[in-house]
């Protein structure tokens, strides 16, 4: 869901170790990179590496029909052009679902017929899978290895609140990191004792800095990135003065990493 805010179509690169997704938004200002490792699934089998080109908007709609207690099984046969999702409804009764989803063989862009369906555990939900032949050039392969000048770790809820509040006030924000202070909305690391009594400074802000950094970013994108906040209790902001910002959410099964090109000139 947090990816579908940024990109509409993307390739899920499936191999025997994991499922990865890398995609840029249409304006090439942001890039999202997702990895979910095989151990993160109850069971996982991938007989051969294959790219699954999926319309994320449709996938999000279909996944919204699942309840927390459902177990979702994703299947794609060899040479398939359909991704098969089956929800194993634990409860005995069936609840009617109203949703639209792609019919097998329909083009991704055409509007889907609204469809009223009594969902049952046995009835597989098909969404049309556009296997996109041109998978995107993976461009983040070297950025994670980039040695960033600074890394700020803070509670993801705090980051979400800050960028949401600031986005009410303007379009962009300057993030400045020095030894003791991350100046987004004047966050300070809770490093020295005298900070203890100042409860306005949130706990759990850790600043690692090799070199002072000061960059300006679009708040619209930061707000979009913060939608991944529910996946992890904390978020890392990695910055250097000459590479895109990395907003990283790590979770048990893998990660979501969002890259954002800075704004330049004051």
């Amino acid at each position: 869901k947090s990816c579908s805010i940024l990109v509409t179509d993307a390739n899920f690169e499936c191999n025997e170790e994991n499922i990865m997704l890398q995609a840029m938004d249409n304006s090439h200002i942001a890039l999202v990179s997702v990895e979910i490792g095989a151990p993160g699934f109850t069971s996982y089998r991938c007989d051969r590496t294959m790219p699954l080109g999926v319309d994320l908007t449709s996938l999000t709609k279909v996944l919204r029909c699942a309840k927390d207690e459902n177990i979702c099984t994703l299947k794609a046969a060899d040479e398939a052009d359909v991704l098969n999702l089956v929800y194993d409804a634990k409860s005995a009764f069936f609840s009617p679902f109203f949703f639209a989803f792609m019919w097998h063989g329909r083009d991704a862009s055409s509007p889907f017929p609204p469809f009223f369906l009594l969902c049952s555990a046995l009835l597989p939900l098909f969404i049309h899978l556009n296997i996109s032949l041109s998978s995107q050039t993976p461009i983040t392969s070297s950025w994670p290895e980039t040695k960033y000048d600074t890394r700020v770790t803070l509670p993801s809820a705090e980051f979400t609140r800050i960028v949401r509040d600031l986005s009410q006030l303007g379009e962009h924000v300057r993030i400045e990191v020095s030894k003791e202070v991350v100046r987004i909305s004047k966050l300070k690391a809770k490093s020295s004792a005298e900070d203890e009594d100042n409860d306005s400074i949130p706990t759990g802000v850790v600043i690692e800095m090799n070199q002072h950094v000061s960059l300006t970013f679009s708040l619209k994108y930061l707000v979009n990135f913060s939608k991944s906040g529910s996946l992890s209790g904390e978020v890392q902001l990695l910055m250097s003065n000459d590479v895109p910002l990395l907003v990283a959410y790590d979770f048990t099964q893998g990660y979501i990493r969002c890259y954002l090109a800075p704004k330049i000139g004051d």
Partner: peptide, 14 residues
């Protein structure tokens, strides 16, 4: 007003 860069500016870093 700051001007938005795009990611292609950074591909050369790879």
């Amino acid at each position: 007003t700051p001007v938005q860069n795009d990611l292609s500016e950074y591909f050369s870093l790879l």
